[in-house]
């Protein structure tokens, strides 16, 4: 099976969906002639042309809202945010218009858009470009939120997102764009709301999404090699819909859980997962649920300190040792 990058897997997903459905278009800053700030859309403008791959001005509220308006008439825009941090200047469109119009119209209008781009810290760029708003998005009924951890998932989930009839926010990761995974050449889709066990284990459940899954796998290796602990790694893949069953099944099996996410801890995604575990697997727990999140301050610029700020294997191993 060929190994391709996370970036190429996404690029292939877009190309296949653009080819399949002429209502699919792409909008975003630098995505066309420049081939994408992170080269995720490389070659698509040359292949599909000006009419379908469109460079926008730096005007997130404008082009996000334009995409939403176009989607009401059946166009299916994929809207790139150069960083999810920039969603904050388009907040009204993305969080007040996109998810509410269907409801407020009594189901008369659909908003089939994908909004996508990287949402991660760890890149030494300071607080304004390091936000991870999957918790805000998942908080909002009407939205779906997807955080792929690897190239295979990124492609299959993105294709499902494009075909979804509701707004789907896909949060990628700049630190994963250049990494390679096995991705089959034949077409496949991964449904939203289906978690994946990335590593089977019996002693503890590490539950994560996005790049934190990769960090958990690294922690699981250290736990096995250095501490004889056999950790299970659950990749949520999407936050909403959430595969609650997979979470609860894993906790029932291992009786312990460490939740890992890159959100800041207060009201972060893992807080919701912890609430679900205590409610649905209380009698199976042999220890309190632990959380490893980003440290609770604005993202620091200084690289060695930022590396400590985002979840890393060392912090995960330490959390596991505290409850095992």
């Amino acid at each position: 099976m060929p190994q391709i990058t996370y970036r190429k897997a996404l690029n292939d997903a877009f190309a296949e969906e653009l080819e399949r459905d002429e209502n699919v278009i792409m909008l975003g800053e630098e995505i066309a002639q420049y081939n994408g700030a992170y080269k995720v859309t490389e070659g698509l403008h040359a292949r599909f042309g000006d009419g379908r791959i469109m460079d926008t001005p730096i005007s997130e509220a404008g082009f996000a809202g334009l995409g939403i308006g176009a989607s009401m008439l059946g166009v299916r825009p994929i809207i790139e945010l150069m960083f999810w941090s920039f969603s904050y200047v388009a907040f009204d469109q993305l969080f007040n218009n996109a998810p509410m119009i269907r409801y407020m119209s009594g189901g008369l209008i659909n908003v089939p858009i994908v909004v996508r781009g990287p949402a991660n810290g760890g890149t030494n760029v300071g607080a304004t470009h390091s936000h991870t708003p999957e918790n805000f998005a998942a908080y909002t009924p009407g939205l779906k939120v997807v955080c792929p951890s690897n190239a295979y998932d990124a492609k299959g989930l993105m294709k499902s997102a494009v075909r979804d009839n509701d707004p789907v926010f896909v949060m990628e990761n700049t630190l994963l764009y250049g990494q390679k995974w096995d991705v089959p050449e034949e077409e496949y889709l991964i449904p939203l709301g289906k978690a994946d066990i990335k590593r089977e284990g019996t002693d503890i459940s590490l539950i994560a999404h996005g790049r934190c899954v990769i960090t958990c796998l690294e922690a699981a290796r250290v736990l096995k090699e250095e501490h004889e602990i056999d950790a299970e790694v659950v990749d949520l893949r999407s936050i909403r819909p959430l595969d609650q069953e997979a979470i609860i099944d894993s906790v029932k099996k291992t009786n312990r859980a460490v939740l890992v996410d890159e959100n800041k801890p207060f009201c972060g995604t893992s807080a919701q997962i912890a609430a679900l575990i205590q409610e649905h697997a209380f009698d199976y727990l042999d220890a309190p649920v632990k959380r490893v999140s980003s440290l609770d301050a604005p993202q620091i610029y200084s690289k060695p300190l930022e590396d400590e700020m985002v979840p890393n294997a060392k912090r995960i191993v330490k959390a596991v040792q505290e409850i095992l």
Partner: peptide
């Protein structure tokens, strides 16, 4: 196409309808 509660929130949507 509505009926929008936030001041100017509908103005990009109008451009989007025209785009479509």
């Amino acid at each position: 196409w509505g009926g929008h509660g936030i001041v100017a929130g509908q103005t990009p949507l109008g451009a989007g309808i025209a785009f479509a």
